[in-house]
Structure formats: C-alpha cells, structure tokens
Computed example of a mutant assay.
Amino acid sequence: MVDVVDPGVVKTGAYKYEDGTRYVGEWNAKGQKHGMGHLVLPDGTRYDGALIGGLCSGLGVMAFPDGAKYEGEFMQGWFHGHGVFWRADGMKFEGEFRGGRVWGLGLVTFNDGSNGFPRNEGFFQDCRMVRRKRCPEVVQRAQKVAYMARAQCQQF
C-alpha cells in the first residue's frame, strides 16, 4: 500500500517559535504548517489535526488549559462546520459552528446529562438559542465528525 501525501506537503519536522509555540508536523514549500500536525501554544492550548497554509483547517482536536475541548471541523483557524465542544464544567454542545461560534442547529447537554426543560435543542445564533427544533441528524453528524477527528489524530 502506498501512502497518499498531500501534494502541498514537502517535508516534516519540528520547530519552536520565539513566543514558545511548538509545532511538529508537515510543512509546505512556503514554510507554512501544512498537512497533519501537533501544535502547542504558549498558554498550553493544544491542537492536533489538519492544517492548510499555517491555519487549522479540516478535522482536528483542540484542547484548552482550563479543560475545555473541541473536536470537529475547522476552517481558516476557526471552529467551523460540525463538531462537539465541551466546556470545562462538563456542559457540551453538539452541532454546527460558524467562525468559531456556536451557530446553527445543535443540542446542549448539561454536566448532569440533562438537556434542560424545555429541551435546549434547535437553532443557535452567536451561542444563543433562537428557535427550538428537533435536529437529531445534525447531532449525529457532529458526533460522527468528532469521532473521525479523534481517530485521525490518534493515527498521527
């Protein structure tokens, strides 16, 4: 079996930046983080996943120093697409994200396992629910994407 390599990837390696950021992974010809990589920021935030032109793009997992975590799709450095976000207190949102914010259909689950009453499921704009609506297919897609992001990162 032949491994398929992203045509933009020209080398793999590690680099530590002056601000303390550390990166291990794939690079493109312009010297940008590109392909699969592991990034640790000075504040302890960790990212494992795909990067395009230096930015988190594609599937990835981001873990924050306070215990919060996001697993899912990224675009140009932002949570964007389907994914699951856990707050440090255990509350989670499974659904759609736009530009780094909860935006679209999804479901909130509190740290006690409940969804609230009435159920916190529906359409969210800028992290606020604006319309209640059942959306099990979106929640399932978010769970699947989160699983795929985790699995991809474990292989790397």
Rank of each mutant, 00 (worst) to 15 (best):
K16V: 15
G106Q: 04
A88K: 11
G35R: 08
R22N: 07
M129H: 06
H34R: 04
E26V: 02
W27M: 08
V130N: 09
Q32Y: 08
D43E: 15
D126P: 09
V24S: 08
V102D: 05
M148T: 08
R22S: 14
M129G: 10
N120D: 14
R87Q: 11
G72H: 03
K144R: 15
G99N: 12
L59E: 03
G49R: 09
H34T: 00
P42M: 02
I52W: 05
K30C: 03
T109F: 02
W86A: 02
G13W: 12
G35V: 07
Q155H: 12
L41F: 11
D6M: 09
G122I: 02
F156E: 13
D89Y: 03
C56I: 07
D112W: 00
A88Y: 04
R128T: 14
F97I: 10
F117W: 11
K69C: 15
K92F: 07
D43I: 05
V108L: 10
A63M: 09
A149R: 04
H34C: 09
G37S: 08
W78P: 00
P65Q: 09
K144L: 12
E26N: 00
V24M: 10
G37D: 02
G58W: 07
R101S: 09
M148F: 06
W78S: 10
G53H: 10
Q155P: 01
E96I: 04
T109H: 05
G81A: 00
K30V: 06
T12M: 14
L51N: 07
V145P: 10
R119F: 00
V84Q: 00
N115Q: 12
A68N: 09
G113N: 04
R131L: 13
F79T: 02
L55R: 14
G113S: 08
G122N: 04
Y23V: 03
G44H: 05
K133R: 13
R22L: 11
L39N: 01
R150M: 11
M36T: 08
S57E: 15
V139I: 08
Y70G: 06
K11I: 06
L55C: 09
K69L: 15
E94F: 03
Y70P: 10
G67R: 12
G99A: 12
V130P: 08
L107M: 05
R128C: 13
R128S: 11
G37M: 06
G99W: 13
F117E: 14
Q155E: 15
M1H: 12
I52T: 15
Q32W: 08
Q154P: 00
G53C: 08
D89G: 05
P7W: 13
A149Y: 06
G44Y: 06
Q140I: 01
P42C: 06
L55I: 03
E71M: 11
V5D: 10
F93W: 00
W27P: 07
H38N: 12
